[in-house]
Each structure stands twice: as structure tokens, then as C-alpha cells.
């Protein structure tokens, strides 16, 4: 079953002058076709301003399509009456952890969402416990969020989204402000939600390493999808990615360099283990 289906999805930002006349039309995304099966782990890459966040905001009905169609969980995102049902289906985690936490106690912060949609009190607490346990933050439930590290705050933000029991979570550069440890925590937590709970994950990132574990990758440029495929195929195209202001994981780049120097290595090596295996193979033949 498809949870997200974008057909020729477009979005134009219209600027008005002081008299209300249309001054300028900026096309943020145009003719985007992305379809996501329930339970997939999808990554979206693209340079700053490529339109990936604009696309992401549609999934959560923060903005509505100005052209084409988008269905989230079978609901038309153009129809304003679907806004709230869509937001329940698809939750969103943003870049800055400090902008997303509102309560002074962690468990209350996680309970804020379900409380807002009128979930009975007992069930709120059940959801809070389940969500905090999922992201490994249950032990901190009584603490104040301002004492947490960035990675922990992002996990609390994810728990807050989890408590809404969404089928899909969009993470828009959730690790941009974190240290290596925090980045690993957040990526680990999102893979766990995906594997254990079957939650569809859409990860937007500038860190190529975080994409390696995704099922499928979309690359955006100038508001269009310009590449799509499994990570291995995407990262085989080192030069093309560089021309799109992107990069490949360090291991992939090293393998690419070794290949250029004459070693018999296939493109799209994604992990250290894979590269060690390949080098072992080459050594064995000698």
C-alpha cells in the first residue's frame, strides 16, 4: 500500500506587492513524482534550496499543493478538510531541537500532542511511556528538557511525534545541529522505529553516511527529482552527485579513488565491511 503518492506535485510561492498585485512567482518544486510504500525507509538528498523541505512540508499538510496531486495515506492533501487527519498520519521532526520542545518536563512534552487531540488521560500516559521507551528516553521522563544533549532532545522530539501514533515520520535534517554521537543516536532511533514498528520514515539530510541504510533514495535539484534509486546505485555516480552540490560517503569516495588508481573495485561501495571484503578478495587473487 502506498502511504505517499505525489503525482506531478508542484508548489509555487506567490509574492504580492503592497497593493496585493502579484509581484513574483517562485516555483519551489515542480512535477515531483515520489511514491512511498508503507514501511519503507526513504532518504531525500539535495542541496540547500533544492526543494526538499518544500516537498516535506506537503506531507504534513503544512503547505498545500498548487499543482499536481499528493495523497497521504489515501487522502488528498489539496483538500483542506484533510489537513488534520493527514497530520495525524504523518508527523514531522525539524532541524533545531530547541524549537520543538515546549514543556518543562520531558513526559509532559511528549504528552502534549495526544492531549491536544483529546486522547483520554490514561491512554496519553500509555502512549508517553511507549514512545519514550522506543527512543530510549524513558529514564529521563521526569527531567527538564533543557539539560539534555542535542541528540537526546531530538529523540524526545521524535517521541513526541510517536505519541501521535503516526504511520509515517518525516525528519527534516534532524541531525544538522548534532555532534557525531547525537547524529548516530537519532539515526539509530529512526531505523528502530522503521524496523520494529513498521513506521514509514522519510529522512532528509546533508550527511551522505546517514543515507546508506535507506531502502530508496531520491535526489532533488531545482525543485525536481533528478535521481532516484537504491543507495548503492545513487552513490555509484560520484561525479554526478558532486555536480549537484552533494557528496558520497567517505568509504564510497575512497573506493572510487582506489578504482581510478587501478584496483578492481565496483562502484557504489557503501560500507567499511564491504570495502574490506573487496580488498581481501583482490589480495587473494594475487
Amino acid at each position: 500500500m502506498k502511504i505517499i503518492e505525489a503525482n506531478n506535485l508542484s508548489h509555487e510561492y506567490i509574492q504580492h506587492d503592497e497593493e496585493g498585485n502579484v509581484e513574483n512567482i517562485i516555483t519551489a518544486i515542480s512535477d515531483v513524482n515520489i511514491s512511498v510504500e508503507k514501511g519503507q525507509f526513504i532518504a531525500i538528498l539535495g542541496h540547500n534550496g533544492s526543494g526538499k523541505s518544500t516537498f516535506a512540508k506537503h506531507i504534513n499538510a503544512l503547505i498545500h499543493p498548487t499543482g499536481g496531486t499528493l495523497y497521504v495515506g489515501g487522502m488528498d492533501a489539496k483538500d483542506p478538510s484533510n489537513t488534520f487527519p493527514i497530520r495525524k498520519k504523518a508527523g514531522m521532526v525539524f532541524q533545531n531541537p530547541d524549537n520543538q520542545i515546549i514543556a518543562s518536563v520531558i513526559e509532559e512534552d511528549v504528552g502534549f500532542g495526544p492531549e491536544n487531540i483529546g486522547v483520554p488521560t490514561d491512554e496519553i500516559w500509555e502512549r508517553v511511556e511507549k514512545s519514550l521507551r522506543m527512543v530510549g528516553m524513558w529514564d529521563y521522563r521526569k527531567q527538564s528538557p533543557n539539560r539534555l544533549s542535542g541528540g537526546q532532545k531530538q529523540r524526545v522530539a521524535i517521541a513526541g511525534v510517536m505519541a501521535m501514533e503516526p504511520e509515517c515520520i518525516v525528519l527534516d535534517e534532524p541531525t544538522a545541529m548534532l555532534d557525531p554521537d547525537g547524529r548516530a543516536e537519532v539515526i539509530r532511533a529512526s531505523h528502530e522505529l522503521n524496523q520494529k514498528k513498521g513506521i514509514t520514515i522519510i529522512l532528509i539530510t546533508h550527511y551522505m553516511e546517514e543515507v546508506v541504510g535507506a531502502d530508496y533514495v531520491y535526489v532533488m535539484d531545482k525543485g525536481n527529482v533528478v535521481m532516484e534509486g537504491i543507495p548503492r546505485d545513487i552513490f555509484s555516480e560520484v561525479d554526478k552527485l558532486k555536480s549537484l552540490r552533494l557528496d558520497v560517503p567517505q568509504v564510497t569516495l575512497l573506493a572510487h579513488e582506489l578504482k581510478k588508481a587501478g584496483l578492481d573495485i565496483a562502484d557504489g561501495v557503501l560500507t567499511r565491511e564491504a570495502l574490506v571484503e573487496i580488498l581481501r578478495g583482490i589480495r587473494g587473487e594475487e
Binding site: G46, N48, E173, A176, M177, H206, K242, R245, L246
Partner: peptide, 9 residues
Amino acid sequence: TAGLDPAGR
């Protein structure tokens, strides 16, 4: 470089 794409970094 926080938040920038790889080329921006």
C-alpha cells in the same frame, strides 16, 4: 558549516 549542503560546506 552546520546545515549547509556538502558543496556549501
